[in-house]
Design a protein around this nucleic acid. Structure first.
Length: 474
RNA sequence: GGCCUCGUCGUCUAGUGGUCUAGGACACCAGGUUUUCAUCCUGGUAAUCGCGGGUUCGAAUCCCACCGAGGUCACCA
């Protein structure tokens, strides 16, 4: 007995920016396939030529790769069931729709959009479910042929028989049962000759030997249509798992208007791929150990459907920020230097940058904060007068600064000077914190900085002297 | 509106009949470390487990009804 190879897939459509929800679904598909020594496939579903945006398919795959989501088979790397782009598989769908027409699971429909519109409106007004009324099902073969000869536009619909309960065992939700009364005669082939998602994905999933369809909850109600299609072909039905949907703060399905849904945005902000993935994992699955920081590698080992969450989690960026900080703090200085480079707008000598990063690392939550965090190391500073004199009057401020400068020049920038300054502050009955704050503002131009002596050391005595002199007498 | 899914601290969740006066994480607050911020450590606020019935000696956990939220009802995916 040979175990069937587990094969999962994601099927993004190239209609815009790479979506965070695609990454969310991907990570579970990938984990399940890898855990079982199976294959994870990316297939591009570009059957909607109206919403198609050229080039976005490449960008989607590129950004999934950036997140560490790499397929075993895809348009880019190919595979034994290529092509992995639906617009290149039109001849296949054409061939397969014939079978459905032949065994009367599908039928031609010549109804105009106007008629369908009117039908729907009356149904909505009478509070019944909008559904096609099967008018064209009664057309004879001859009538169909005549219509086609006359060049009438048509679609091909699935013939759904009413009154049947379609049941499937969802790997996440358990048994789901939906009656065919609530299912429309789905269009399979559009009047432009392109298949709809419902038809193309079933044909492709079968041909590509997909064993487990792991997708978002929004697909639950169309799953019976898909099962009907498999049955109409006489094909084996794959297993289904419907994950919860990422939500906005108001609990609606995550959307561009209310959230940053583009992976591009997260990249620009300086979120680390492993942090994003870790966060997404947490939103859909719970670790039996309770630990929340988990690598993709470990997740693949521990994944199971019974720990997938059923309710739709709100995408809480606060938690992502925390996770990102955790991952940034774990990096070595060399790694951090590489990570920060694309965000850094200053040209800083590597040895100096090393020192800066060493004392800045634990303060970075997102990589794009780096410039704000370290600007005063490289840019000239102009501490506002009111900030400079926030703690003491001008005379006292100058006194403190003069003493600080002398101490640092005489002893160098080191622990010894720091101690001397502190002793002096104590002796003169200054508040130690306030005393150092004056020096910080004069040298850093701000109230927040890494530890002062380390900071001044990086600036160097010359620059420190210049900055303090500039603040004296103001 | 029909159908489907879901419902534990503000948020993400643990929990599968007794060890739950409900545990953890983020956020928030306080204290400690510290010359600021951050990190780190300690502690705290916060869910009568959507509501109401029932089953049971005992229910967050089982059952029913209700309510709420979401999804879906396209020649979009």
């Amino acid at each position: 007995m040979t175990n069937k190879e587990i094969r999962t897939r994601i099927a993004p459509s190239p209609t815009g920016d790479p979506h965070i929800g695609t990454a969310y679904i991907s990570i579970f598909n990938l984990a399940f396939a890898r855990q079982n020594g199976g294959k994870f496939i990316i297939r591009i579903e570009d059957t909607d030529r109206e919403r198609y945006i050229e080039g976005t398919d490449k960008i989607i795959i590129e950004n999934l790769n950036w997140l560490g989501i790499e397929a075993d088979e895809s348009p880019e790397i190919g595979g034994q069931y290529a092509p992995y782009v639906q617009s290149k598989r039109l001849h296949i769908y054409k061939e397969y729709i014939k079978k459905l027409l032949d065994n009367e699971s599908a039928y031609y429909c010549f109804c105009t959009k106007e008629r369908l519109e009117g039908l729907r409106n009356t149904q909505i007004h009478s509070h019944t479910q909008p559904k096609y009324d099967k008018k064209c099902l009664s057309l004879t073969k001859e009538e169909v042929e005549i219509n086609i000869k006359e060049g009438k536009e048509y679609v091909i619909r699935l013939n759904v028989k009413p009154g049947i309960d379609i049941k499937f065992n969802d790997l996440i939700r358990g048994e789901v049962s939906i009656n065919t009364d609530s299912i429309d005669d789905q269009v399979l082939i559009k009047n432009d000759g392109f298949p709809t998602y419902h038809f193309a994905s079933i044909v492709d999933d079968h041909l590509m030997k997909i064993t487990h369809v792991i997708r978002g909850e929004e697909w639950i109600s169309s799953t019976p249509k898909h099962i009907l299609l498999y049955k109409a072909f006489g094909w084996e039905v794959p297993s289904f798992a419907h994950t919860s949907l990422l939500r906005n703060k108001d609990r609606s399905k995550i959307s561009k208007r209310k959230n940053n849904t583009s992976i591009l945005w997260y990249k620009e902000q300086g979120y680390l791929p492993e942090a994003i993935i870790n966060f997404l994992i947490l939103l859909g699955w719970s670790n039996p150990s309770g630990e929340e920081i988990i690598s993709t590698h470990e997740f693949i080992k521990k994944f199971s459907f019974d720990r997938m969450t059923k309710s739709g989690p709100i995408f809480d960026i606060d938690k992502l920020n925390w996770i990102n900080g955790v991952y940034i703090r774990k990096k070595s200085i060399d790694e951090l230097k590489k990570l920060v480079k694309p965000y850094l707008k200053y040209d800083i000598k590597p040895s100096k940058l090393d020192k800066i990063l060493k004392i800045t690392q634990e303060r970075i939550k997102k990589l794009n904060e780096i410039n704000d965090l370290i600007s005063f190391f490289v840019e000239d500073i102009f501490p506002p007068s009111e900030l400079l004199h926030e703690k003491y009057d001008k005379e006292t401020t100058d006194k403190i600064l003069k003493f600080a400068l002398k101490t640092l020049k005489d002893n160098g920038i080191n622990k010894d000077s720091e101690l001397k300054l502190k002793e002096h502050a104590l002796q003169e009955k200054y508040n130690v914190g306030d005393f150092f704050m004056v020096i910080r503002i004069a040298t850093c131009g701000r109230k927040v900085s890494p530890p002062l002596i380390d900071t001044l050391d990086i600036l160097g005595i010359e620059e420190v002297e210049k900055r303090i002199q500039n603040s004296i007498g103001r």
